[in-house]
Each structure stands twice: as C-alpha cells, then as structure tokens.
C-alpha cells in the first residue's frame, strides 16, 4: 500500500519545526529516518496531515566530543555509529549495538533520535542509552528540555516528549576506560526486533544493568548491579543468584514478564554479564 496524501515540510530551524508541529494541532508528525514511520504510513496504521522532516535542522546530524561526554544529534544514523563516523564514548558498546540493529538498509537511514522518540520497547537504543546514563534533549514550545534516558520512556511508544517537542540530541557520558560491558538479545528472525535483551556494564564507581524488549520502559536492575559490583569473575554457577536478583528487581519495579520471557531475559542477562568478563556468548549459525 501507499500512504494517504500527506504534506511534507523540511524546515531549517528548530523553532520553525516546533512552530509547524504546534500549528498542526497534533496532525503533524516528525520524520527522521522514516524506518518505522514510513511503513506505518504505508500500511495506513498511522495517518497524519503533515510530515515535518527534521533532518535539515542545524546540528541534528552532527556529533561532538566534549571530553567527559559525547553529544550526538538526533539524526545521526545507526550506520554512522556502527562505522565509527561519530565519536564513541562507550568503549565499543554503541558501535556493537548499532551493528546488530535490523539489517543494513535500516541502519543506513534509521536514526538514534527517531528510534528513541518512537520508543518501541524492543528497540536497542532505549535500553542502551539508559544503561549508559545518557540524557535526552529536546526543544518544544516552552524552549529546551531534557531528562535522563532512564526516565524518558513512560510506557510502550510513550515518552516524556510533548506533542510539539522535537528530540534534538543525546548526551552520553564517557565510560571509564576500565569499564567492561556485555549485551545480548534474542531475535526470532534476522533483522527483527528483539523479544528479549539485556545490557550489563561493570565500571569503577557503579555498575549498570538493564533489561530491554519488555512491554514498556527498559527495566533497571539495582540488585543485579550490586551483585555485579561484587563479582570478580563469572562462573556459570553464578547464574542462579543472578536470576534471583533479576526476578527481585523486576518485581520491585512493579513489572512482570511471562514465563518464557522471564527465562529468556535471564539468559540474555547471564550472557551479557559473562561477556563483560570476556566470555563470548554462544552464537548460532556460525559455519562449523
């Protein structure tokens, strides 16, 4: 199918973009890489009167290394993160994550800001940015705003962004040089969204652990983080304790996972933690 007729504008200032959104009274939608929005328009699951293309806004496609943190414009593509075309504050976590998003055609056009703003619970950047302690920045009718990535998502497809706000960039603090990370996700088909995902970061001054691909916001795992801080190595026998900590964290967050999903999340988490200690996770389909 093709989308219903729709107006398209590509403003050259953020203020103009916000103005265009405001004057449309909710009938306009921000277009970045279009890798989710355009298929939804084509399937006519979504319908808008106007698309406001933000890829021409100053600074949205640039990146800057500010020493203790890196700022990425919202329209930086997965491909540029994957290939190192933008500075990496994450000791390789972000390029690795980017390289496993969908497939190459999506990575070529899809953007980190678009992915965050859509807030599909299974998207990679939601959990990754939360785990890295990033901050999301936007500009709206009331001026600029920002919040920690961890607090950005309120529910599936629902974020702190107001109807007329434009996500402009992400500030990502630089990981400690000694920080070690691991990440693992399960996808049923090549290029599909994940249905279970975990990230673990061990670093001096505070470990971080998150589950992604839940039915809502990424779930932070404080008990797991405490456990990670005390681990000196990974042994398969630690998995049971890790699973218990994860279960306690999920319950404490007021969330629940179905039985298979809980086990798959637990396996992802164990593999992510093991990976942070240098153990390559098992991968299927490698030529024997």
């Amino acid at each position: 199918m093709k989308p219903a007729p729709i107006a398209y504008v590509r403003p050259d200032t953020v203020e103009r973009a916000v103005g265009l959104l405001s004057e449309s009274g909710g009938e306009a939608k921000v277009l970045a890489g279009g890798q989710s929005l355009v298929p939804m328009l084509n399937l006519r699951i979504a319908a808008f009167e106007r698309l406001v293309d933000v890829t021409g806004l100053p600074g949205l496609r640039s990146a800057s290394d500010e020493g203790s943190e890196v700022r990425l414009g919202a329209c930086v593509t997965h491909e540029r993160i994957q290939t190192g075309d933008v500075p990496d504050p994450s000791n390789g976590l972000m390029p690795s994550t980017a390289s496993r998003i969908a497939y190459q055609a999506v990575r070529n056009r899809g953007t980190i800001g678009g992915s965050l703003a859509l807030a599909d619970p299974a998207a990679d950047w939601l959990a990754t940015m939360a785990a890295l302690g990033a901050a999301i920045e936007w500009v709206g009718p009331d001026g600029p705003g920002s919040c920690p990535a961890e607090a950005f998502v309120e529910a599936a497809y629902t974020t702190r962004l107001g109807l007329y706000d434009v996500l402009t960039g992400i500030r990502i603090p630089r990981l400690h040089p000694d920080a070690r990370w691991g990440t693992y996700k399960l996808c049923r088909k090549t290029g599909e969204f994940a249905h279970a995902m975990a990230i673990a970061i061990r670093q001096p001054g505070g470990c971080r652990a998150f589950l992604g691909a839940t039915e809502g916001a990424p779930i932070r795992l404080p008990a797991v983080e405490d456990m990670l801080a005390g681990l000196r190595g990974w042994d398969a026998s630690d998995a049971a304790r890790l699973g218990e900590a994860m279960a306690a964290d999920v319950a404490a967050a007021g969330r629940s996972l179905s039985d298979v999903h809980a086990w798959q999340s637990r396996t992802c988490l164990a593999r992510a933690v093991a990976m942070s200690f240098g153990a390559a996770p098992p991968r299927l389909g490698r030529a024997a």
């Binding site: 279970a196 299927l284 389909g285």
Partner: peptide
C-alpha cells in the same frame, strides 16, 4: 540444525 538449549532458538545450518 543448531539449537541454543538455554533459549530454544535455533538455526538451520
């Protein structure tokens, strides 16, 4: 096939 016994995921090789 290869089966990941911890997840049930598999690949037909």
């Amino acid at each position: 096939v290869e089966v990941d016994t911890e997840t049930g995921h598999y690949r037909i090789t």
